[in-house]
Write a protein that binds this DNA or RNA. Sequence first.
DNA 1: AACAATCAGTCAATAAGGCTGACGTAAACT
DNA 2: AGTTTACGTCAGCCTTATTGACTGATTGTT
Lengths: 183, 183
Amino acid sequence: MNRDRGGPGLHGVPGGATQTPSRPEQLLFLTDEQLRQGIELLFFAYRDFTSDPDAVLAERGYGRAHHRAIHFIKRRPGITVAGLLDILGVTKQSLNRVLRQLIEDDLVVQTTGQADRRQRHLNLTPKGEELERSLSAPQRERLRRAFSEAGPDAVAGFRKVLERMIDEGGRDAVLSLVGREGR
Amino acid sequence: MNRDRGGPGLHGVPGGATQTPSRPEQLLFLTDEQLRQGIELLFFAYRDFTSDPDAVLAERGYGRAHHRAIHFIKRRPGITVAGLLDILGVTKQSLNRVLRQLIEDDLVVQTTGQADRRQRHLNLTPKGEELERSLSAPQRERLRRAFSEAGPDAVAGFRKVLERMIDEGGRDAVLSLVGREGR
DNA sequence: AACAATCAGTCAATAAGGCTGACGTAAACT
DNA sequence: AGTTTACGTCAGCCTTATTGACTGATTGTT
């Protein structure tokens, strides 16, 4: 099983609108050591974070690729194949293999687009919804716990930093995809 | 001995010393939607975050496995092979191939342990140090920027949440590895 | 001294999940 | 009519990870 992820993907247009900084860009003293700690904290937190659904996935013989596809189909019901490709940042061939399995296993359905009949709109079946929940449940639980323990101010800071870690080019596109109600 | 996939790694003793919560465990109202946003934010931020060194790595024909090894050898100079195995959570066989290359390319040196001569202590050569810097530089720069823009309170919250996302079992061990000076 | 356990390194086989290139088909745009 | 777009698929390759089995050196234990 492959544990790598990531990749370029989602490179949008640079048109960057800065998000009204709450304080006047106060320059921080940040030592390399502090930054290295941040890097490692991210590494470990993310590693444990992704280990949750991996267990569920393994039982079914799926991998992370399936998880990502299911996640974003859940999030954007009716998304087209090309749209999913953009978000995931993988090749058509890679996605296709995964998609084929999910459709075969009755977790995802395709419907031909009405406006543009070349497109295939993707949706989860009830069975797919169920798997999605069982994948995200442990992650949500982990976050819920961490957020609760850390408190609302910490959560706000957490989001703020993560948002600013995203490539400036695609940031607005990503953030509008993710949704910003929590802010 | 082989370890299983997605391994939690770094399992320490549960002896959990709670980190003096700054407020009395105030229960937060967290909707599934908010939590899903957190999940996605993590996904995108981490994806972009890891894309930085990937570019450098690709030029040299290395992968993420090399990066992780180099990172932790830099962080824990003189670490043994078994120690590195524990941190990375991969199998000996996987690490060995990577290590062999790094040694061959004169980025890492092995020295036989003095106390226990079965052990091999790993260190970066000057050349290895150089690669490590060029790998971590863009990540540090990204974090520096994000931290500066978000402000010190947000950074504190960021760390706080990440720490609490780490598996409780190994948390103390991980945090003492990472270091906590920044708090 | 003999034996067992540990640390490191290796070989062979297998698998997941990425990649590129090439091609085909249907539908839409010009 | 011709070009472009959206999707699907075949074939082949690579990297990283897996398990199992084994060797060699060293250390610890009886």
